[in-house]
Structure formats: structure tokens, C-alpha cells
Write a protein that binds this DNA or RNA. Structure first.
Length: 259
DNA sequence: ATGGCTATATGTTATAGA
């Protein structure tokens, strides 16, 4: 089962590039972030015509997450628990059943800039809530995949110019510690578990020729529960599509699970 | 770099992203 995460930076702007990548990469499941669309405006036909089931958790203008799956999506839940007042669409869950059942969580973690400030406080409180949800999911003792745009640069080797990010919400010590606190529950960061070398990125800014200069950062991740990590057969980043016409500023990151 | 570009809606300018 090939599972990918992809921050598409607006579905309306990606109606050509996203289906093209789907047809080439043929993932079984895709966790999408920043659909920037309400549910009613999401072009689900584009995906249903290709054999995908579609579940969305949309929002006007900003944020918004969705799941595409070639297998039926069961027990869908929308929103990250823990704060009834939080109406930002950044979390969706569902179960797919292949050889075994896998719980999928698609997430768009808050950016948090400028830091310090209220947006940074929101990022850290959101991560504390995510840790609670991650803890509860471990108790299920099943394969769990939490995938999305984490807006976290885990280590210096995950940025081409780490010195430029020292004060940034994506790389500040509190952000990275909150990420490690989730990992330390027992989750495996799939890509880094298979690729120890630096220089692999999932985001290049539109500005300042970041793509041409390979000035990237690795902020899109798939975290695996122990039961999912045992099924991991491979991982990769589809870097090439960043160089095409009208790209997102992120590229897909994927895993192959024996599930 | 004090955001150089992109996307969206609030739309001929503002807001957000990372």
C-alpha cells in the first residue's frame, strides 16, 4: 500500500498538476493539505473518476485537509480533539483495510510565525493536543500513519541553510522538542529511518530562486506507530514535480507499507 | 532581505504562507 502526503497549496490552482502526478505515481492513499477550499467546492470528480474515494475537511480560503483512497475510507473523523474553540481545518482521520487495517491521520500543523507570539503559542498548543491524540492511537496497537505538513525542520541536515531558520517557528528549539516528544512516544519518522544522509527536502520557497538554488527544507513527514513501522518497505520524495509548470511549493513524500 | 512569489477572497489591496 503506497501512502503519500502532499501539501498542494490550493486545489483550484492544482487541478492539472495533481491529477498528472496521481496518474504517474499511482498512490493508493494520498493525504492532502492546504486544499484552501470548502467541502462543496472540492473537485471530487477529478479523483472519483480515477477510482479514489474522497473525504474532505475543508475551510474557506485557508487550511483544509483531505484524503484520497483507492480503498474505502471508514470511521472518518474531522478535527483534532482537545479544543472545541479551534475551528481551523487541519486534521482528518480514517481507516483503510488492505491486508490489515491502517488508521490514517492527515495533518496540517500550524506554521507558527512570527515567533514568539500568539501564532507560535497556537502551534505549540496544537502540538500538545496532537501528542495526546498520538498517545491514544498507540493504545489501539494497530498500524497508524500520521502524515502531513508538520511545518517542522527536525534537524539541521533537513535544511540547505539551517542558519537562516534559527529564529523561525519551523526550527526553534521548542518546536523541534515538541516534535521529538511525539516521536519519543514510540513513533518512527519514516523517511529519516531509511535515509540517513542530508540534502533531502520537501519544500522550496517560490521566492528568490529557492528551487533553482536547491535552497529547500524537509518539513513534510510520515510518522509510523510500531505496528506500522514493522510494515515499512520503502520511502521516497517525488522531487521532480517541483520543476514543472504551476507547481505547489511542496512535493509529495511517500511510503510503501506491506498492508 | 526589510520576504524577492503564489494563492485566495476580503478583490485593483489585504492576508497568509514558510
Amino acid at each position: 500500500m503506497k501512502i503519500a502526503t502532499f501539501n498542494i497549496n490550493g486545489i483550484k490552482a492544482r487541478v492539472d498538476a495533481l491529477p498528472q502526478w496521481l496518474d504517474e505515481a499511482a498512490p493508493d492513499v494520498v493525504l492532502l493539505q492546504e486544499i484552501k477550499s470548502v467541502d462543496e467546492a472540492f473537485p471530487r470528480d477529478l479523483f472519483e473518476d480515477r477510482g479514489y474515494f474522497v473525504e474532505t475537511h475543508g475551510q474557506k480560503s485557508f487550511n483544509g485537509v483531505a484524503i484520497l483512497s483507492k480503498l474505502p475510507l471508514e470511521d472518518v473523523e474531522r478535527g483534532l480533539p482537545g479544543d472545541e474553540a479551534d475551528d481551523q481545518a487541519r486534521w482528518i482521520e480514517a481507516t483503510v483495510v488492505g491486508k490489515t487495517a491502517v488508521r490514517l491521520c492527515g495533518l496540517y500543523l500550524p506554521n507558527g510565525n512570527p515567533a514568539p507570539g500568539p501564532k507560535y503559542d497556537y502551534k505549540l498548543s496544537w502540538m500538545a493536543r496532537m501528542r495526546d491524540r498520538a498517545t491514544a492511537l498507540l493504545a489501539e496497537e494497530m498500524p497508524v500513519v500520521m502524515a502531513g505538513d508538520y511545518n517542522i525542520i527536525p534537524q539541521a541536515e533537513d535544511a540547505a541553510k539551517p542558519e537562516a531558520w534559527v529564529e523561525d517557528a519551523l526550527f526553534r528549539p521548542e518546536s523541534r522538542a515538541a516534535f521529538r516528544r511525539i516521536l519519543n512516544l514510540g513513533y518512527t519518522e519514516a523517511f529519516r529511518s531509511r535515509e540517513p544522509r542530508p540534502g533531502h527536502y520537501s519544500f522550496w520557497d517560490y521566492q528568490a530562486g529557492a528551487w533553482q538554488r536547491n535552497n529547500g527544507i524537509r518539513i513534510d513527514h510520515l510518522l509510523l506507530s510500531p505496528q506500522a513501522a514493522d510494515l515499512l518497505n520503502g520511502t521516497g520524495i517525488d522531487k521532480g514535480i517541483r520543476g514543472r509548470d504551476k507547481p505547489s511549493d511542496h512535493v509529495p513524500v511517500w511510503i510503501e507499507l506491506d498492508a
